[in-house]
Computed example of a mutant assay.
Amino acid sequence: MFQKILAYPLTLIYLICFGCCLMVFHPIQWVCLNVFGYQAHTNSVCLLNWCLMRCTHLLGTTYNFHWPDKLPEQGPLIIVANHQSMYDIPPIIWHLRKYHPKFVSKKELGKGIPSVSFNLRHGGSVLIDRKDRKQALGELRKMGEYIDNTGRSAVIFPEGTRSRDGAPKPFRTFGLSMLIKYAPSAQILPITINNSWKMLRFGKFPHGLGARIHFYMHPPIPVSSLKPESINEIETLITSKIIPSK
């Protein structure tokens, strides 16, 4: 009970800082993209997400990354992860910035959110209409071909929506299958995310305090080595490291 009471003023301070970051970086992104080009815009997005991570320290949040013995020197990668909250995203963008991660996102996020919506529309990500399979197929094909041609990376959360208590939802394999099909030179990087759901354990307000968020990077898997049953094996690999909620 005391923690929840303390969470109210800390969350208010956090949200002010979070919102200020989004507002400040929105025009910075615009200038970087339209004046200086892709790389400047990418740098601004990475810096924004570093700042967003630092803001969460106001809530006592910490991040721990477990890295495999070896990661590819460059992309393309298909980054596949379970999804527990929006706080899964900034650490992926920052810590995997050398791979230029782009997101498969629902179309609703493409408008109305300063900085975030701008980056999704203009930074190489794709926006999916989950009710329009034909549109989704076209966007996923575009993403797969894009990363295959540029050596950049796609991030997909196959559950389709976040888990509110950390328990994994069944993977929807359509999106991942399309990326694999259209990015044959890519490697898949499975990631297990733990405890980011605790940031929203009380709902949207107040936020949870003291979350210890863990990212477990599994060894990369070349798309060229995949078999028909491999997608199910990737799901099993990711979920095997999920820590049951307490």
Rank of each mutant, 00 (worst) to 15 (best):
G144S: 06
Y87T: 13
N43Y: 03
L176R: 04
C20N: 07
Q74E: 14
L48W: 14
I188T: 09
F65L: 12
F18H: 14
T161A: 08
K102Y: 10
L6G: 00
D69C: 00
G75S: 03
P219Y: 04
C17N: 13
K142P: 04
E229D: 15
S240T: 14
L47G: 01
Q74R: 14
P76Q: 09
L109G: 06
C46V: 15
G138W: 04
T11V: 07
V126M: 00
V31M: 07
K227W: 04
A40S: 15
K181V: 00
I193S: 03
Y14P: 01
V155K: 08
I5E: 02
F205W: 14
T61R: 03
Y63S: 08
N232T: 15
P206N: 10
D129F: 07
E139T: 02
D148F: 10
H26G: 01
T62F: 12
C32S: 14
Y216I: 15
G151D: 05
P219F: 02
P168R: 02
E159I: 03
H207M: 15
K134F: 11
C20Y: 11
L52R: 06
D132C: 06
T42C: 02
S153F: 07
S230Q: 11
I13F: 11
K98A: 09
E229G: 12
N43F: 01
I238C: 05
F174M: 13
Q84I: 05
E233T: 13
